[in-house]
Amino acid sequence: MTPTPTPTPTRRLTAVAALVLAGSLLAACGDDDEVAAVSGEAAPVTEAANTTDTTQAEEPAGELEVADAWARTSPAVATAGAAYLDITNGTEADDVLLSASVDAAVAARVELHETTAVEDDGDAGMGEGMGGEEGEGTTDTSMAGAPMMQMQPVEDIPVPAGETVSLEPGGLHIMMLDLVEPLEVGTTIELTLTFEQAGDVVVTAEVRDMAP
């Protein structure tokens, strides 16, 4: 069996740290993007503010803003779709995204999801191990494969005061299940996000076939 580059925990930490470093370097030389998501104030996405319910009276400064919402489905089998957005909590209180919903005409169920890279849990072998896992005297345990990308529902998504949480492909996302019709590129859907503090925030997500 050919050895696979199995990242050791240490190496992975290094890689993650390096990625963070790369991220900050990029932030330093990047232009729009991040900034647009954070600046919020005059952004065209502030319909969020209009639909926030009663609680803002006591908010001292800033508000919770949702920007850059978009959604995508698989082009072939459109039973599920994912929506992505950035949530910036400009308030001084921590908030939590509790749930999301869409009109029943769009999807029957909406869940908060996170895709994470999971190592072999011993249950799923290379190629799932349907039957012939121990052929040819080799044990699969000697060769860990690449981590699996796996989706899992999450209870809620914390948005600490002053921070931006990005829902993006391969990470946190809003999962629309049992789509009534395939999402069509170029159309929009309305998402209602329910926050612990900010209440309901309605955003319009553009259906796209690639990330904005």
Partner: peptide, 13 residues
Amino acid sequence: VPPRARRGAPVAI
């Protein structure tokens, strides 16, 4: 689009 580090990037980088 400027490259950005994606949050969901896997650990095996």
